[in-house]
């Protein structure tokens, strides 16, 4: 018999229960008698605000870390997930996945973390430019992180999460992730990977709860600079984009597409001019 673990939220580098005290029971989809697999702390609005505070606090240091270091840390995430390959897949199987699907899911997530790890020290070269202006100036455009990014992750708890979180972190942003509503166990277990991968506390925060309740607060929050709504249900997306108008968040629906422009959705271009003449 398994221990009936209580999965906690991951905020500011610590695993916390919801301040609201809310807990949800996750039942097995494979047994008919509604066997409780685990209990999951269920995030409140206050938890979301705490996560934004943690993300804001961690952002300057993460942005000023060298791209080489950020790349190594993202690669470390892939390594740590690889080390937990068996248990991560088992957890998916207990949640009703086939063994084959679970293995594919874990592999896809590892692959995505490795792919983005290699982008950290290349985004500036690929998205930035030296611009040939018609005058005696050096003119250089470089991408900079927007700051704190809210991420509504889609259903696949490891691969989809990797696809939207890795590009956000890659460019120097910090994140507040609303994990897959359908598969809390795998997503919150993945937070344990983040916690042991040298990702500084607060850089990636993972919440689980009712997306319909939490996501609008994320879109409203004045200290969130951008939001990826690709995981939000269709009926919710329009509302989230509308709410983002308050502080003119950048809104993206990247679906985790593997291209540098996905990271670019969360980067602001800065163009610097300087005279070049004597």
């Amino acid at each position: 018999m398994n221990e009936m673990k209580t999965y906690k939220l991951y905020v500011g580098g610590a695993f916390v229960r919801s301040e609201s005290g809310r807990v949800t029971s996750v039942t097995s989809v494979t047994s008919d008698d509604g066997e409780v697999l685990a209990r999951v702390a269920t995030a409140s609005r206050k938890d979301l605000r705490d996560a934004v505070v943690a993300a804001r606090g961690a952002q300057p240091a993460w942005a000023s870390a060298t791209p080489y270091l950020r790349g190594q840390i993202l690669y470390r995430v892939a390594e740590m997930l690889d080390g937990r390959r068996t248990s991560a897949a088992d957890e998916l199987v207990r949640s009703g996945w086939s063994k084959a699907d679970a293995a594919v899911e874990v592999d896809a997530a590892i692959d995505t973390w490795v792919w983005w790890a290699g982008w950290a020290d290349k985004l500036t070269q690929v998205l930035g430019s030296v611009n040939p202006v018609a005058g005696p100036f050096l003119n250089v455009s470089t991408p900079e992180p927007v700051g704190v990014v809210g991420v509504v992750a889609a259903d696949r708890p490891l691969a989809d999460l990797a696809g939207v979180l890795a590009p956000v972190l890659c460019g120097g942003n910090t994140a507040v992730v609303l994990a897959s509503a359908a598969h809390p166990l795998a997503a919150l277990s993945f937070a344990e990977v983040l916690a042991t991968s040298d990702v500084p506390g607060g850089v990636a925060n993972v919440l689980w709860g009712d997306v319909g309740e939490l996501a609008p607060w994320l879109a409203d929050h004045a200290d969130v600079d951008a939001i990826d709504v690709s995981g939000a249900p269709d009926g919710l997306r329009c509302d989230l984009v509308e709410r983002s108008a308050g502080n003119l968040k950048r809104c993206a629906a990247t679906s985790g597409l593997r291209r540098p422009q996905t990271a670019g959705e969360f980067l602001d271009l800065k163009t610097v001019w300087h005279p070049a003449r004597v």
């Binding site: 611009n131 003119n139 003119l248 602001d268 610097v272 001019w273 300087h274």
Partner: peptide
């Protein structure tokens, strides 16, 4: 989004122009 160092209000079609935060995207 634009920083002019030892100059100001220079514009060029090859130079991306636009803001951060409440100045748009």
């Amino acid at each position: 989004g634009v920083v002019w160092a030892n100059t100001y209000n220079q514009f060029d079609p090859a130079s991306p122009f636009g803001g951060m935060r409440a100045s748009g995207f």
